[in-house]
Amino acid sequence: MPILTLSRITDIPAHSWDAVPGVTQPFLRHGFLSALEESGSVGIGSGWQVQHRLLCDGQGALLAAMPLYLKLHSHGEYVFDWAWADACRRAGIDYYPKFLCAVPFTPVSGPRLLGEAMPLLDHLEAGLPELGVSGLHVNFTDVHSDALLGGRAGWLPRLGCQYLWHNRGYRDFQDFLDGLTSRKRKQMRKERDQVAAQGIEFEWRSGGALSEDEWDFVYACYANTYHVRGRSPYLTRAFFSLLAERMPEAIRVVFACRGGRPLAMAFSLQDEACLYGRYWGCLGDFDRLHFETCFYQGIEQAIAGQLQFFDAGAQGEHKLIRGFEPRITRSWHYLQHPGLRVAVDAFLQQERREVLAYAEAARQALPYRQGSA
């Protein structure tokens, strides 16, 4: 069966890609990936060279797909392998380029091996030496991808820990608060009251309801979170307009305003089950505004929409005391060099024990009353 390589996802119709089994999250849709490419957020000069793999039947119908990139660095992945690359550099081994199956700049677990992807894996593993690629990495997998990769020789699993808010059928935010310990309930109310006392109000908008001027503000906030740390933003301004064109129904933006003037924003995507908080930014300094905009507003939105989950982004232990529960994430790594594979395997075995122990200990910091979580 033919295996094709795409250097542009627009070389295949959106309906064909989106019909592949596993394209269930907004990040995997043709509209999202094409917006990344056409906006220049990935592609030439970014270190993310598009190399999507497709498996077709004899009539050209799409059977399987992998969102795949040839990486020249490890920026924007959120599964940190800089130490592996540095060890290779010191040993005189080439670590880059490498193949990465992932959604750029998106540490959200989900399907990665779309459809019947085993032949694609076979093809990629066999072709690594000829292509001069050090390895193949698959980041933030779902249980289906875990089962496929866990049954293949040479693949090393890596664990991480993120935080996810679960909706247990709450009627409203107060119903959620009622399930917390008294101290944590008072803390959250105090934080929300501090924001309200500053005269700040919130407005939720869908992607199709924003003007280009409002998208300019969204981007300015997003970019500022990088600039204050002396870094360049991963996404370009054009990405947001392209995404609003192609997937407006999936976009949710909340604006924090005072006197009708926007001060901050949080950008999310939504599907039938989950609200995914992705980007935030503020063009001033306001007490507790980050917690309200990024966490409490999202919880309220998830409850109002009867969504099962709210994923507020990677990392951040401060999420624990606000009701976000630890969950284990997985990535998988196939490394060509035998010495590197042995060394990384030993490291990952120790790291997995530490991550599991951390996640178990983190559950003790959750604010729920006994029996309510």
Rank of each mutant, 00 (worst) to 15 (best):
residue 48 W to K: 06
residue 50 V to N: 10
residue 94 D to N: 13
residue 73 H to N: 10
residue 133 V to L: 11
residue 92 G to I: 00
residue 152 R to T: 09
residue 113 L to N: 07
residue 159 L to Y: 11
residue 104 P to V: 03
residue 109 S to Q: 02
residue 163 Y to F: 15
residue 121 L to M: 12
residue 30 H to A: 08
residue 67 P to L: 06
residue 59 Q to M: 14
residue 71 K to W: 07
residue 99 F to K: 11
residue 77 E to C: 00
residue 147 A to H: 12
residue 120 L to R: 07
residue 83 A to K: 11
residue 51 Q to E: 15
residue 84 W to F: 10
residue 85 A to M: 00
residue 68 L to V: 03
residue 60 G to A: 04
residue 150 G to A: 08
residue 97 P to F: 02
residue 115 G to F: 05
residue 43 G to F: 10
residue 43 G to T: 11
residue 48 W to A: 00
residue 105 F to I: 04
residue 144 H to Q: 13
residue 108 V to K: 00
residue 114 L to R: 03
residue 139 N to K: 15
residue 94 D to V: 13
residue 53 R to N: 08
residue 78 Y to P: 00
residue 110 G to E: 00
residue 106 T to V: 05
residue 163 Y to Q: 10
residue 33 L to T: 11
residue 162 Q to G: 08
residue 72 L to D: 14
residue 121 L to G: 10
residue 135 G to P: 03
residue 130 E to Q: 14
residue 63 L to T: 15
residue 142 D to M: 01
residue 77 E to R: 03
residue 154 G to E: 04
residue 46 S to W: 09
residue 96 Y to H: 05
residue 58 G to E: 13
residue 33 L to S: 08
residue 50 V to E: 12
residue 114 L to G: 04
residue 149 L to F: 07
residue 38 E to T: 13
residue 78 Y to D: 00
residue 132 G to D: 08
residue 51 Q to Y: 14
residue 110 G to M: 03
residue 165 W to V: 01
residue 121 L to A: 10
residue 161 C to P: 11
residue 68 L to H: 03
residue 87 A to S: 12
residue 81 D to T: 10
residue 51 Q to A: 15
residue 119 P to D: 12
residue 160 G to E: 04
residue 122 D to N: 15
residue 140 F to P: 00
residue 82 W to D: 09
residue 158 R to Q: 04
residue 103 V to C: 04
residue 60 G to W: 05
residue 118 M to A: 14
residue 144 H to K: 15
residue 80 F to R: 06
residue 145 S to H: 12
residue 43 G to I: 12
residue 95 Y to F: 05
residue 141 T to G: 01
residue 138 V to K: 00
residue 103 V to I: 11
residue 76 G to T: 08
residue 156 L to T: 06
residue 109 S to Y: 03
residue 110 G to Q: 01
residue 116 E to A: 15
residue 139 N to S: 14
residue 117 A to M: 02
residue 90 R to G: 08
residue 48 W to L: 04
residue 61 A to T: 14
residue 103 V to R: 02
residue 153 A to S: 15
residue 81 D to I: 11
residue 101 C to A: 07
residue 53 R to D: 07
residue 75 H to A: 15
residue 96 Y to V: 01
residue 105 F to L: 03
residue 33 L to K: 10
residue 114 L to H: 02
residue 142 D to C: 05
residue 94 D to R: 14
residue 117 A to K: 02
residue 95 Y to I: 00
residue 67 P to T: 09
residue 137 H to E: 01
residue 39 S to D: 10
residue 92 G to C: 00
residue 136 L to W: 07
residue 37 E to F: 11
residue 141 T to V: 05
residue 62 L to N: 09
residue 128 L to E: 02
residue 45 G to F: 13
residue 59 Q to P: 15
residue 45 G to A: 12
residue 120 L to K: 07
residue 73 H to Y: 10
residue 106 T to M: 02
residue 153 A to V: 15
residue 62 L to F: 07
residue 125 E to I: 13
residue 136 L to P: 04
residue 84 W to R: 03
residue 85 A to G: 02
residue 112 R to E: 08
residue 124 L to V: 08
